[in-house]
C-alpha cells in the first residue's frame, strides 16, 4: 500500500515536471480551460433568462450541477483521460511490454502514467461556480451535505474511471478506440444539465448506459441536501460493483495482449 502511494507520488511529480517544461503551453491550456469553463455557462444563462425554473431546478441549483460538471471534467481530462489514451497507444505499438515487465500492478501503472496538472483550473472553476451559486442562495451547505457530496464525488470518479478501463480493455480486441474517447466526451457533455431534464430514451441512456446522472446530478443533489439516503447508498454500492467489474474485465482482456510489434 505504502509502496503504491510512493509510486503515485513519483508518477505525479514526473507529469508535473513534464508539464512545466512546456511553460507557454501550460499557460495557454490553463487559459483555454478557463475560457471553456465560463463560456459553457452561456446556454445556462439563456435558458434561465427565459424561465425561472426548468424541470424543477432553479437557476442556482442548476448552477451547482454545472459546477460539478466543470469539476468532473477537470478530473476526467486531467487524471483519467491522458493516462488511458497512452495505454491505447502502448497496445497499438506493442510497447505495453515495458509496463508489464515492471514489478507493480499493471492497471495501477497505466492508470497513473500521465496527469495534466493545468486541469486544476477546471476544479477551481467548479469551486468558484459553487461559491457563486451558494452566495446567491444566501446560505452555506451543511457539513453533513458536504461530506455526502464528497463521498459521491469519489463514487463518480470511480465510475468514470471504470468506464474508461472498460473502453481501454476494448482496445485489446479492436485496437482503434481513440475515437471512442471522443464519443464518450461528447456524451459526457450532456452531464452539465440536471438529468431530470431528459425524458424517455435519453433518461435511460444517461442513468444506466453512461451514468452521467451519478456523476453530476447526484453529487449536486447531495450538496443541496436533497438526496435521500437510499439513493446515496445505492450510488456507493453501484460504483463499487462497477469498479470491481472493470477490474475483472481488465484482468481478462490483458490475457489477450499479443505485443503487436514482435
Amino acid at each position: 500500500m505504502k509502496r503504491y502511494l510512493r509510486l503515485l507520488g513519483v508518477q505525479l511529480r514526473a507529469s508535473t515536471t513534464i508539464a512545466l517544461q512546456y511553460r507557454v503551453e501550460f499557460l495557454g491550456e490553463g487559459a483555454l480551460a478557463l475560457f471553456w469553463a465560463f463560456w459553457s455557462l452561456v446556454p445556462l444563462l439563456v435558458v434561465f433568462g427565459h424561465r425561472p425554473a426548468v424541470a424543477g431546478w432553479s437557476f442556482e441549483e442548476a448552477l451547482v450541477v454545472m459546477g460539478w460538471f466543470t469539476l468532473m471534467k477537470g478530473v476526467l481530462e486531467g487524471a483519467v483521460n491522458p493516462s488511458l489514451t497512452s495505454v491505447v497507444e502502448h497496445i497499438r505499438k506493442g510497447t505495453l511490454d515495458f509496463v508489464l515487465l515492471k514489478p507493480a500492478d499493471a492497471q495501477f501503472l497505466v492508470s497513473t502514467a500521465k496527469f495534466e496538472p493545468w486541469r486544476v483550473v477546471d476544479v477551481l472553476a467548479g469551486l468558484a461556480i459553487f461559491a457563486v451559486a451558494f452566495h446567491r442562495m444566501g446560505r452555506l451547505p451543511a457539513p453533513t451535505h458536504v461530506l455526502a457530496a464528497l463521498t459521491l464525488l469519489v463514487c463518480a470518479a470511480v465510475t468514470l474511471y471504470s468506464l474508461w478501463i472498460l473502453v481501454v480493455s476494448a482496445a485489446f480486441f479492436v485496437v482503434k478506440v481513440d475515437n471512442l474517447s471522443f464519443l464518450f466526451s461528447s456524451i459526457f457533455d450532456a452531464a452539465r444539465w440536471p438529468v431530470t431534464v431528459f425524458r424517455g430514451a435519453w433518461r435511460v441512456v444517461f442513468t444506466f448506459v453512461v451514468p452521467i446522472a451519478l456523476m453530476t446530478t447526484y453529487p449536486a443533489l447531495a450538496l443541496l441536501g436533497r438526496l435521500d439516503i437510499r439513493a446515496a447508498a445505492l450510488a456507493v454500492v453501484g460504483a463499487a460493483a462497477f469498479g470491481a467489474f472493470a477490474r475483472v474485465v481488465w484482468a481478462r482482456s490483458i490475457g489477450h495482449y499479443t505485443s503487436a510489434s514482435s
Binding site: H50, F182, S186, F198
Partner: peptide, 23 residues
C-alpha cells in the same frame, strides 16, 4: 465503424433538443 462513431458523437443537437423541449 470509425465513421459511425464519429457520426454518433454529433449528438449535441439531440441533447439540446431534449433540453429545450423541457423548457
Amino acid at each position: 465503424a470509425e465513421f459511425l462513431v464519429w457520426l454518433l458523437s454529433t449528438n449535441m443537437p439531440l441533447v439540446m433538443l431534449a433540453l429545450w423541449s423541457a423548457v
